[in-house]
């Protein structure tokens, strides 16, 4: 069974997954680097269990992939499909944000 929407189908992990994909869109990173980047960029704590639950699902869906490493730290990078899915998801979120701000009488910065 292949999910129709690889991000929406992540359920409670969708938000963390998008944040992880955004971090990886800037280049390959390992778990600790992803965690600290997400926390720095969103101000939200990302627990190690949540991080790896999301990483496992993203890897399962082929949106990220591990890179060879001699270290105990395993770097991941965005795949081509991950890049496409992230772009589509961010476009959807942008449209949602624009629509909401417009209805509130405000404009996006």
């Amino acid at each position: 069974m292949t999910p129709e929407d690889p991000v929406a189908d992540l359920g409670g992990l969708a938000e963390a997954s998008v944040e992880i994909l955004v971090v990886l869109s800037g280049g390959a990173a390992h778990g600790y680097a992803i965690k600290t980047a997400v926390e720095r960029e969103t101000g939200r704590t990302l627990g190690p269990g949540t991080l790896y639950a999301a990483l496992a699902r993203l890897e399962e869906r082929g949106l990220i992939e591990p890179l060879p490493s001699d270290d105990r730290r395993q770097p991941y990078r965005l795949t081509g499909r991950g890049s496409q899915v992230l772009a589509a998801e961010l476009t959807r979120l942008q449209a949602l944000a624009n629509r909401g701000l417009e209805r509130l009488g405000r404009t996006a910065e």
Binding site: H30, G31, Y32, K35, T45, G47, P48, G49, T50, L51, Y52, A53, D71, R72, R73, Q74
Partner: peptide, 22 residues
């Protein structure tokens, strides 16, 4: 790699709970 992550940032109570849920 998870152990390496925990070595970089030793987990507190909240992170331990998050690991148990994970």
């Amino acid at each position: 790699e998870m152990d390496a992550l925990l070595a970089d940032e030793p987990p507190g109570l909240r992170a331990r709970l998050d690991l148990a849920v994970g």
